[in-house]
Design a protein around this nucleic acid. Sequence first.
DNA 1: CTGGAACTACCAGGG
DNA 2: GTAGTTCCAG
Length: 743
Amino acid sequence: MALNLKDLNSAQREAVTEIEGPCMIIAGAGSGKTRVLTYKLAYLIERGVSPYEILSLTFTNKAANEMKERVTNLTGLDANRIWMGTFHSIFARLLRFEADRIGFTRSYSIYDTNDSLNLVKRVMTELEISTESFNPAAIHGAISKLKNKLILPSEYSIKAYNAFEKKVAEVYHEYQRLLLKSNAMDFDDLLIKPLELFSRYPEILIKYQKRFKFILVDEYQDTNRAQYQLVKMLSQMYENISVVGDDAQSIYKWRGAEIQNIFDFETDFPHRKIFRLEQNYRSTGSILALAGDVIKKNRRQIEKELWTDNKKGDKVKIIETLTDKDEANKIARQIRDEIKNKKLKFSDFAILYRTNAQSRTLEESLWNSGIPYIIVGGTRFYQRKEIKDIICYLKIIVNPNDDEATLRVLGLTDGIGKTSIEKLVLIARDTGRSIYDVIYTSETNPEIKTALKKNLREIISIIEKYKTLKNEIRLSELVNGVIDEIGIISRYKSENTNEAEERLNNIEELKSAVAEFSDNTEEPTLENFLEQISLVADIDEFDSRKNAVTLMTIHSSKGLEFPVVFITGLEENLFPVSGSIANEEDMEEERRLFYVAITRAQKKLFISYSNQRYRFGVQSYQVKSRFLKEISDKVLKENVEIEKISLKDLVPVRQKKSGISYEYDNTAIKYNGYSKSLPEFEDDKFSDIKKGVKINHESFGSGQVLAVTGKGIDKKAEIYFKDLGVIKKIILKYAKMRVIQNN
DNA sequence: CTGGAACTACCAGGG
DNA sequence: GTAGTTCCAG
Ligand SMILES: Nc1ncnc2c1ncn2[C@@H]1O[C@H](COP(=O)(O)OP(=O)(O)OP(=O)(O)O)[C@@H](O)[C@H]1O
């Protein structure tokens, strides 16, 4: 099949066909950078490059999977063999092969943020550093920053100046020592350890340099120092490296990303070619005009002129509301209206916010309006208590040196509390052994009391049993076996609450996830499963095929596009967020974030701010964001439409003494704001509940609608709940449920 | 040692 | 408003 480059404009085509030598593509928002990368991969493969020889680094696992699929479609050849994924997952995989060189084994554990923080706390206790005077989270953050900057503990202990820094240096050193001892790496290590490996063993570096003849990096503006070093080292032999990025969309400085990498590329690769993509295909003229106007305020940026052939389109609407609740209600209503008038699907809408805490209010309004929605982010599936409990047993089976997992399992075991755990930790520390090893040999240890020995036996028997069986039985048998034997099911069953029910559902979901992993993975080992679940990002789980409104942070929305976008909470101290106000660089990053948010929209954009908002459970008064005040008169006139609070939003409230006065009332506004269209609105409310639709009910779990009776507000549905195995008649206006799948 | 009540820190974002 | 931690009775 011949690749058709007609789907590219001339700038894109040039960037695609330039495959040899270093190449930097500066691509404005919506200018088709994903398309260029996809075609470049396809072009390489068509020219006979083996997928094995290509290393393609993406920002999310989801992006990698989608790109593989598209390359396969374009070429008709299997793109699955390309080394494609996030930096973290690619180098985690590479480390599995080479870990023994740097003192780890191939079954090393990956510590997530929680594990790392717990380890910091443990180190602080051990070093007798008070967690009251020094915030463990702050220390952990400081350590992570140092690691991103490639500063070693030994270097830092010389540099550390004030009391805090000195404590950080102490903790950092011990933290690294314990990670090594536990055969564990944190997220930062996944990038740093390969660098260490490559510097210490040039022959290994050469091996990978030879393998990766072509290297592509997406979202280059958000790579950190370690990531840049990695691609620089790996590309040294062939210098066939393409990086694609947009300095205006750099939004991860806070976790170590360095825009400087864009400028360094020019100096480090003097022969580099530079391509610019400046035609935007995504958005209307008005949306783009606003975006350009916003980003203009930033000083530090590469000159580029983004333009479009698209129509000017509808004006961007800026909406002022009285409260956060009102903001949410207006959005819900707007979605209803748009769907009715324009034949849009729920999935055409995205609601974006600066902080995750804002999602609750928005969710409530959508719920009350009967609009199906998906929230990206929040508590991750694999972070849930019941799931993490199970995972920790699995982690010990793979890596018995994993002290964090062992500590958690100890905490779960009946009869073992603080005192016993402290005792075991102390023995482990004194003898330099892992905690599990102390447990394993406890029978013959005179320091351990008989009662404790008895309680430890259960842990030993489960872990040892599955350690032996691990390579003989299938992955799902192993996981199901562990779940059965640790008694977690019966514990939740006996609780008999909604919460326990949900936890049981989650455990079932874990089993399905294991089964799915086994079916779709070449080597479905426990190690690989654990690695994969450590590295899933929130956005990876987002399924754009589901017909639901998407709620997410602006950070998560990077790289995506939606016909209709709502950007919420344009208020001082929220967007821009409070921490960014004192510092010009942070402020510029906030502005870039606003730019990213605006440029997600294809057809229609709504931006809202509210005068009052619940924060930390109390009402607080909010001030309109400076980002809105900065918009130029020209754009305000030509591309923007403003909707202020009007008198009709004010509702009469009975005062105790004197008659009626106009003031805002949080509970009444909902009714008043909708009063005109309320009947029709209510009629629509349950229109999604139709025969065959799959729903999820808060107490009864998932089910399928068999029949619908009644009208309007009295509508009832007969639903078969498969978890309970019963059919129930539900009065919809009281039901707490939502549609999970339309048919 | 356990479980629930009381208290407190939090909400800037994430692999 | 919520999640995580601490405290205390049983
Ligand atoms: N040559 C082209 N002709 C028509 N449409 C195009 C062309 N190139 C890209 N597009 C469309 O433009 C839109 C944006 O493309 P893409 O998602 O690749 O942008 P991007 O550069 O990754 O944007 P961002 O950096 O903002 O995430 C997509 O809908 C894509 O299909």
